[in-house]
């Protein structure tokens, strides 16, 4: 009997492995292999203009990168963009979720309206914003004019370019935070809030002291996704500013594009991509551990 059981178990295991094999091979070839190739390339001087001569350069790409002013400038811009955009999205997302939590039962279509920006193709939304930001023919300056405010150059001025990009990101991704927080609120039992209100706490006090702490796991998830995504933002910046004016909006991703696709220095661009990956992993871990936001036991 035990022998027969073992045979059956082995057959089952073999069957499971065979069934998983296609998906595993596909996943490995689409993710792990390109990643390993990138890691290898980051230690070489590989350039698409001289594909026959790949030389091993060790850590040179990394040392060049970390001693380059362009890299640190781009890292600073990326950090500002990520923190400010995700910060505003979180405040707005949580705020709107709190307001909508009770209202959506009466008007469920409100939820659809708030989620629309996230459903629109990012590139289409970005091109629409490009028209809206147009300093001479765009609707934003027209509205400013109606309010008696002088027109802004928006994405074309170094003072306002990054803010304009943050505005687009906030418009597009606040609904993501909103969706997750609203889901979290719907899943939470209402008794603690009811008890708090019976004890005489007002709606603000109840929200900040009772509801918000219980939303921590949901918020952590939303923030983690958004921070990683905002850190990698490319489409909005590429279409609206291309990294300009000057280098005022040249983020790490734009810099990697510049070195990889324009300068064709694949070794250097790979090193930059690996540094970005390491930075994202480390920052994600620090975020989760330090803030303890992902402690599901709470």
């Amino acid at each position: 009997m035990p022998l027969r059981q073992t045979t059956i178990q082995r057959a089952e295991r073999s069957f499971i492995l065979w069934m998983l094999a296609p998906a595993t091979i596909l996943m490995l070839s689409l993710t792990l292999v390109p990643f390993l190739v990138s890691v290898y390339l980051s230690f070489t001087d590989y350039s698409l203009t001289a594909p026959e001569t790949i030389n091993w350069v060790g850590l040179k790409n990394y040392s060049d990168l970390l001693s380059s002013a362009d890299f640190w400038d781009a890292a600073r811009i990326t950090t500002i963009f990520t923190i400010v955009a995700v910060g505003i999205e979180t405040v707005l997302g949580v705020g709107i979720a709190a307001l909508l939590h009770h209202e959506v039962r009466q008007a469920p279509w409100l939820r659809v309206i708030y989620l629309l920006p996230m459903a629109i193709t990012p590139i289409a939304a970005t091109f629409t914003f490009r028209l809206m930001f147009n300093p001479t023919q765009g609707v934003l300056n027209h509205l400013l004019g109606l309010a008696g405010v002088s027109p802004s150059a928006w994405t074309a001025a170094p003072e306002t370019a990054l803010l304009s990009l943050i505005l687009v990101d906030v418009w597009q991704w606040t609904p993501f935070i909103l969706l997750i927080v609203m889901g979290g609120m719907a899943a939470l039992p209402p008794e603690p809030e009811e008890a708090s209100q019976m004890d005489g706490a007002g709606p603000f006090r109840t929200f900040f002291l009772v509801t918000l702490p219980r939303l921590k796991p949901y918020l952590a998830l939303a923030l983690l996704f958004r921070l990683i995504d905002a850190f990698k933002t490319f489409d909005i910046i590429f279409v609206l500013t291309g990294g300009g004016p000057g280098v005022a909006t040249r983020t790490l991703n734009l810099l990697a594009y510049k070195y990889g696709i324009e300068f064709l220095s694949m070794g250097y661009a790979s090193a930059l991509a690996i540094v970005m990956l390491v930075f994202t992993l480390v920052a994600g871990q620090v975020f989760l551990r330090r803030l303890g936001l992902f402690d599901l036991k709470d």
């Binding site: 300093p135 001479t136 150059a153 928006w154 074309a156 500013t241």
Partner: peptide
């Protein structure tokens, strides 16, 4: 130059001249 010229490529320049802007 026009406001926002920092974002001008050839098509914006052509568009402004062709439209009388």
């Amino acid at each position: 130059g026009p406001i926002g010229v920092g974002n001008y490529h050839w098509y914006e320049a052509l568009n402004d001249f062709s439209s009388g802007a």
